[in-house]
Simulated assay, not measured.
Amino acid sequence: MRAVAVRGFGGTPELMDISVPRPAPGEVLVELTAASVNPIDLGIAAGRLPLPHVTPLVLGVDGAGRVTETGEGVHGLEPGDLVHGQFFRSPLGHGTFAEYAVVTEFPDHGALQRVPDGVPAEIAAALPTAGMTALGVLDALGLRAGQSILITGATGGVGTIAVQLAAARGAEVIATARPDADRWIRELGAAATADHTAGDTAAQVRKTHRSGIDAFLDLTGDTAGFGEYAGLVRDGGAAASVTFTAPPELLASERIAVSNFEMRDKPDLLARITAEVAAGRIMVPVQRTVHLDEVPEALARNGAGGARGKTTVRIR
Score class of each variant (00 low, 15 high):
Ile149Cys: 11
Val6Pro: 05
Glu276Asp: 11
Ala238Thr: 10
Leu292Pro: 09
Phe9Arg: 00
Asp200Phe: 02
Asp108Glu: 15
Val277Phe: 10
Met263Gly: 14
Asn38Gly: 08
Gly11Asp: 13
Gly305Tyr: 09
Leu57Ser: 14
Ala246Tyr: 02
Leu59Gly: 04
Glu31Asp: 11
Ala239Met: 06
Leu141Asp: 11
Asp268Thr: 15
Pro296Cys: 08
Ser211Met: 11
Gly159Trp: 00
Ala24Ser: 13
Ala168Tyr: 04
Ala166Lys: 00
Gly8Ile: 03
Asn302Thr: 14
Ala101Gly: 09
Pro116Leu: 12
Glu294Val: 03
Asp117His: 13
Gly221Gln: 06
Ser148Asp: 12
Thr289Ile: 12
Ala246Ile: 01
Ala130Asn: 15
Glu27Asn: 07
Phe88Tyr: 14
Phe261Glu: 05
Leu232Thr: 02
Val313Ala: 05
Gly305Ile: 11
Thr152Leu: 08
Leu270Met: 07
Thr129His: 09
Leu127Gln: 07
Ile18Cys: 12
Val163Lys: 09
Thr193Ser: 07
Asp41Gly: 01
Glu105Ser: 14
Leu29Ile: 01
Lys310Cys: 01
Val119Cys: 08
Leu42Tyr: 09
Gly157Glu: 07
Pro21Thr: 01
Gly131Leu: 07
Ala171Phe: 06
Leu112Asp: 12
Thr155Tyr: 08
Thr197Tyr: 10
Ala198Ile: 10
Ala175Tyr: 07
Ala279Gly: 05
Leu59Val: 04
His209Gln: 11
Val6Ala: 08
Met16Asn: 00
Arg66Glu: 14
Gly159Glu: 04
Leu165Glu: 15
